[in-house]
Amino acid sequence: MTGVTEQRTGAIGLAQVDRLREAGLLPAERYLAAATAVRDARAWHLWAGRALLALGAGQVLAGIIFFFAWNWAELAPFAKFGIVEVGIAMAAVAALVVGIDRAVGQALLIGASVLIGVLLAVIGQAYQTGADAWTLFAAWAGLMLLFAIASRAAAHWLVWLVVLYLALALYADQVWGDVDAVSEARVLVALGLLTLLFIGIREWAVARGTTWLAPHWTRLVLVFGSAALLFWPSTGFLIFFHHDATILVAMVPAYAALLWLYARVLPDLAAATMVTGFAALCLIAAGFRLIEDTIGFTWSDALRALFTLALMVAWSVAVTGAMAVVFRRLQRALA
């Protein structure tokens, strides 16, 4: 009944209008008017503006990147450096003038950060030293950190994280590539565990009142990133792409920690559902591996093939069923 009380006093949305239409209480010709009436016009104006800003800024920056990738031979290296450096300075100054707490100011600072990467790439073009690519990304991540700190914008930190992860992945490949203990799967797991650390930092900062990190999407992006980075190598082991079982030692407690965090400590149905989904997929793959290891599968033995397939069907049905039960419990516990 709580829901009904809330509906009497609180604002309703499109989903409620849809239900009124389904119940035959709202005529079809008045549906659009009702949807318009319950819509949060200000929020949607803001969304449209931000989408346009992101689209415009993204394309202008891509245009600049393409221009320097074209590598105009008649333009002297120092002229190239100068153009990009002036661009960085102008973007940073313009951000200060506009105000770094506004969307335009934050977009300008992100632009300055991207131009730092362009400058480093242009330096690499001019002085072909043969240095590994990870040095470029590491320097980029280091130099743009100041702008990221100054901007106090979650989108800027996301760009920084992507550059940092590229630097780390390239470092592992180019510097530790010959070390036996370092494999592609282990690097992904390490990045997934590192993302857990960033999740912890995010939650700690939000708890201490850092409002610019508070939007829900920041949590969901990090949880998805961590769960996905741990998922691929774990599933790779379970479906015989590699034989490194130690990866499961990292994946299982990491998923358990995320589920505990978002089911018990900081209740969040969306984040908990995401982790449950990844865990269910891993569980299905684990069951398939167990069936394959113990019974085996071959088309030449009809009875065994059918028995194995039937077991796999039953297992996938059981796991998706268990996932539904877990979800319903989470929903009721977090309601």
């Binding site: 104006h45 346009l52 800003l53 415009g56 394309q59 920056l61 393409f66 221009f67």
Partner: peptide, 28 residues
């Protein structure tokens, strides 16, 4: 790459001009 860069920058600038129009009307 040069033609692509000009096209990208022009379309991006167009989007930013439209954003400026929205901002001037106070919609963002």
């Amino acid at each position: 790459l040069l033609a692509k860069s000009i096209l990208l920058a022009a379309v991006g600038a167009g989007c930013l001009a439209l954003y400026a129009l929205l901002a001037r009307r106070g919609a963002t």
